[in-house]
Structure formats: structure tokens, C-alpha cells
Amino acid sequence: MLTLQCPYCGVDAEETELHAEGEAHLKRFGPGSSDDDFETYLFMRENPKGVHFERWRHSNGCGKFFHAARSTTTLEVFGTYSAQTYEPPQDIKDKITAKYPGWSWREFA
């Protein structure tokens, strides 16, 4: 059972109170973008064994979206943070580096 702390209401919400909303930090390519960019935006996703960044929604709760950094292999959660950001906060990156030196995920490392 995955337990994530909602950064808005501060509760340690378990999985059944949340809804997974796919990969975090996607950059949207809309009308007028190239076919390649649009295809990448729509379909190309990370599928890592290890560190991963995801979007979650506290659906049976405050209803807000937030981001979570976790490991897909160990289910270890490095932290959750607000969705109003373009990249993971430094303290979460540091935490991951301490555990998995040399990790990388898309453009982040």
C-alpha cells in the first residue's frame, strides 16, 4: 500500500484516497506545434525502473493535484510537492541523490 502525504491538507493519504494522474512535468505542445513534438507530448512516457516523478490527485479529499517522487522498484517515497512548479524541489533531488547517486529522469538529475 502506497501512502503519500498530500502537500495541501497534510494528511498521510493512502492509495485508495488518491488517484494516479500519470507522469509529472509534461510540457504541453498544442495547436501549431510540430507533429514530432505533439506525438512526444501525447504518447511518449518514461517507464523507469527506479526513480520516477508522478502526478497524483487527492480525489477523495481536498481534490488538489500534487506531484510525488518515488521509486517504482522499492515503493520508497522521496517526497511530495506542489504541482505549481516546473521541476522537483532541490531538497527532494538531494534526497534521491543520497540514495541513488547518479540518477537521472528525463532532463532532471
Partner: peptide, 20 residues
């Protein structure tokens, strides 16, 4: 406050989300 209710003489207010 976050996840609290308050009571007044004519009603109550409950924290639903950061903007509700």
C-alpha cells in the same frame, strides 16, 4: 485552520480544501 471546523453563533465553517 487546515482540516478543522469552527463554530459561531449562526453556523459553522469547515475547511474543505486550500480554497474552499
Amino acid at each position: 485552520d487546515v482540516r478543522r471546523v469552527t463554530t459561531g453563533k449562526d453556523g459553522m465553517a469547515a475547511w474543505m480544501s486550500p480554497d474552499e
